[in-house]
Nucleic acid binder design. Structure first.
Length: 477
DNA sequence: ATGTTC
């Protein structure tokens, strides 16, 4: 695939064949030189052929191959003439990240780290098919799908301010539980408040370095501060919503009469019964994910208090922000100088709204929206802030994480004979996990260098570095 | 990512 540098941190796939717009990849020269993502680049070009796509099919430096659309991809479609596609969101609808800061410092946690990680692992169900964190009736589940994070707070599983510091207030109003299948409801019934598996985790970390004092102060972050970072999504419910939607979209797309370069790009006009049905079901799964992360934060608060023998006031575990990185949203963006109503697909990409945007919580509005970028479990995670340049160049979007370089299979092979948990322990990172091959599949070597990913988006100007976090304890599924 | 191939 031919890539033309159009600026020091942006490369273009020129328009050819059925492409309606070019492709655009945000990455440093160094990452471009090491790029071996031919299949993912082809997927960017494929997305560029879809009806109603605006400006360019975009990808972030953490891009890799995904279902139809690349992971690390951003695609915005005109609301009236464009399409919506489950492949542009991903199977784990509203997979996302939540960060809480505490009143504690590293010295308060080091002596109890072993007990803390053990207690977190006991109190939070992990792994494929994990259940049992909260008891839910079907009636309550429908409320979760409609209300999102606020439902959990109403149950006493969090604070009102948690919801205020969540993207979209932890709720997409377009949710319509009547379009969610019985099977999806069944899968969701017992999984609320569970972590899941794969790259999902809950991590106790420490603020390692501050890059932007003003933004860090606004976000309530200071050096040596203990943080909790958690990464999970909508579990089996979201997976089932995606699966159900792909089934009816595949049927529907045959009636559209458009030629798709890949059947995994199955889609519908946004303003069609099929498009609206997917959007309404997707929003339900998004709300479920926000309730899920809300409950996990509550479990973390309970566990810290139990292990440290302190009350909520001394713990002071307060939410910094919660973002989604697998979602489609209705947003207004300036396109060719005019405001346009668009449907932005972010799949393995994060919203990065600029200072002054009304969707950014008031306390953060002068510095921009917080962005949470988890690294692999052996290195670091980053807090960034949204920028005006992101509004202008990437539909208010940035990267989402390190991005895989090794397939799960390849990672397992490379880890043979190694004790990954010991390698991490040598770096001062305690890890507890449930899946037989989780640690091998998720080992640091399986991921790109998070520092390079973050330098790319910082260099491109689509977000700016605020702080780096270093892990101390990690639980995984 | 996923009751990891209803």
């Amino acid at each position: 695939m031919k890539l033309n540098p159009i600026s020091p941190f942006c490369y273009e796939i020129p328009r050819t064949g059925d492409m309606r717009v070019p492709g655009r990849i945000f990455m440093s020269r160094r990452m471009a030189a090491g790029l071996s993502e031919e299949e993912a680049l082809k997927q960017v070009a494929n997305v560029a052929t879809l009806p109603g796509i605006l400006t360019a099919a975009m990808a972030m430096p953490d891009m890799h191959w995904g279902y139809g659309f690349p992971i690390g991809g951003v695609a915005a479609f005109d609301w009236k003439t464009g399409v919506i596609s489950p492949g542009g969101v991903g199977y784990d609808i509203n997979c996302g990240v939540r960060l809480a800061a505490t009143g504690l410092e590293e010295k308060d946690i080091r002596p109890v780290a072993e007990r803390l990680v053990t207690a977190l692992f006991q109190n939070i169900p992990t792994g494929v098919g994990s259940t049992g964190s909260v008891k839910l009736s079907v009636k309550d589940e429908l409320k979760v799908l409609k209300q999102g994070g606020a439902w959990a707070v109403r149950q006493g599983l969090g604070d009102a301010v948690d919801v205020e510091r969540t993207e979209d207030g932890g709720c997409m109003a377009e949710a319509d539980p009547s379009v969610v299948s019985q099977r999806a409801l069944e899968r969701g019934l017992k999984q609320l408040g569970t972590l899941g598996s794969g790259n999902h985790f809950l991590e106790v970390g420490v603020v390692d370095e501050i890059f932007d004092e003003d933004a860090a102060r606004a976000f309530g972050l200071f050096e040596n501060q203990i943080t909790v970072l958690l990464h999970t999504g909508s579990r089996g419910l979201g997976y089932q919503v995606c699966d159900d939607s792909l089934a009816f979209m595949n049927k529907h797309v045959k009636t559209l009469g458009i030629r798709l370069p890949d059947r995994q790009l199955a889609c519908a006009m946004i303003r069609s019964p099929e498009g609206e049905r997917y959007f309404a079901a997707m929003a339900c799964a998004a709300n479920y994910a926000w309730a899920n992360r809300q409950i996990l934060l509550h479990r973390a608060r309970e566990t810290f208090q139990q292990v440290l023998g302190i009350g909520p006031r001394d713990l002071d575990m307060h939410q910094v922000y919660d973002i989604c990185h697998n979602i489609a949203k209705r947003e207004t963006h300036i396109v060719d100088g005019n405001p346009r109503d668009v449907c932005v697909h972010r799949k393995g990409a994060t919203r990065a709204f600029a200072p002054g945007h009304a969707a950014v919580p008031a306390a953060y509005r002068h510095v921009g929206q917080p962005i949470l970028i988890p690294g692999d479990m052996g290195t670091a995670s980053y807090v960034l802030a949204g920028t005006q340049k992101a509004m202008e160049e990437s539909f208010g979007s940035t990267c989402h994480g390190a991005g895989r370089v090794l397939s799960r299979k390849a990672a397992k092979k490379q880890s043979k004979g190694r004790a990954i948990h010991r390698e991490l322990a040598d770096k001062g990172i305690l890890v507890k996990w449930s899946g037989r091959s989780t640690l091998a599949e998720e080992m640091p070597d399986a991921y790109k260098d998070i520092d390079q990913v973050v330098e790319s988006v910082h260099g491109a100007g689509i977000s700016k570095k605020v702080a780096r976090l270093r892990p101390i304890c990690v639980i995984k599924g």
